[in-house]
């Protein structure tokens, strides 16, 4: 069996069932998610897209256990998130989830290497030195390891964030607009690292973005509108993504 085939047969990394999220009460009630059913395949790079206010960030926060859904369930692997205490959720994030945010990904007091090792340090795990070397090689940060974030460019900072997310071999990495703050060249670099890590390391990545170009790096794109999953595109290109978006906005 090829790697791809193995992945198709593996159970999905993240599954959301009938997920709803309601903010506020009474007149100010806002339905951010209205019964979302979606699953993310292991070893795949999935993008979540949608217009502003479509609920894509809320979906990601609920999937990652950062925010509690109003109803419905979320599974990360075989663990159901609903009903977990804050402590259990924290431990789950520590063990199974990696994060890449749009900005402010790094602790300013730590060097690049300390930032990368931070998730392992927090959970008192030893770094897999081989994996570490390979990740560093992949993101091309070898000579920047002792620098502090203020001494790195925006693209370098995001690459450190990618390396940090990869180093703990999480079950899934959630990326929230990882290229939102970057120029197009640095953005393209970061996105190809993400794609490489999916292809070569078998990493599962879920990325929220509003940029069709970024979404085109994914294996599959799911589209949200007004808190509902409306459509999806597999093997996307910038053009197919853009066309779908235009259709959605109409």
């Amino acid at each position: 069996m090829t790697l791809t085939e193995t992945r198709r047969q593996a159970p999905p990394a993240v599954v959301a069932t009938d997920l709803t999220k309601v903010y506020g009460q009474g007149d100010t009630r806002v339905h951010a998610l209205r019964g979302v059913n979606v699953s993310f395949a292991t070893g795949a790079f999935t993008a979540i897209m949608g217009p502003s206010g479509s609920g894509k960030s809320t979906l990601m926060h609920c999937l990652a256990g950062l925010d509690a859904a109003t109803s419905g369930t979320v599974h990360i692997g075989d663990v159901e998130l609903t009903g977990l205490s804050d402590r259990q959720l924290t431990l789950l994030r520590r063990e199974r989830i990696g994060f890449i945010f749009q900005a402010f990904n790094l602790l300013p007091t730590l060097t690049a290497e300390q930032n990368i090792r931070l998730p392992l340090d927090i959970s008192a795990r030893q770094a897999d030195q081989q994996l570490f070397d390979r990740v560093i090689e992949t993101v091309g940060l070898k000579d920047r390891l002792s620098h502090r974030p203020t001494e790195l460019s925006g693209g370098q900072q995001q690459r450190v964030a990618v390396a940090r997310a990869l180093i703990s071999k999480p079950q899934v990495i959630f990326a929230d607009e990882p290229t939102g703050n970057l120029d197009s060249r640095s953005g393209a670099e970061v996105l190809s690292f993400l794609r490489t890590s999916v292809r070569e390391l078998g990493q599962t990545i879920v990325m929220v973005t509003h940029d069709p170009m970024a979404a085109s790096y994914a294996d599959r794109v799911v589209f949200l509108r007004d808190g509902e999953l409306v459509t999806e595109v597999t093997a996307p290109t910038p053009q197919t993504v853009l066309d779908t978006l235009v259709r959605l906005e109409a």
Binding site: A64, L66, D86, R87, T90, L91, R93, R94, E95, F99, F101, F104, N105, L107, P108, L118, P119, I122, S123, R164
Partner: peptide, 13 residues
């Protein structure tokens, strides 16, 4: 934001 980041990365309360 820094504290939130640490919490997201798995630092318990």
């Amino acid at each position: 934001r820094e504290s939130a980041l640490l919490r997201a990365l798995g630092l318990t309360r």
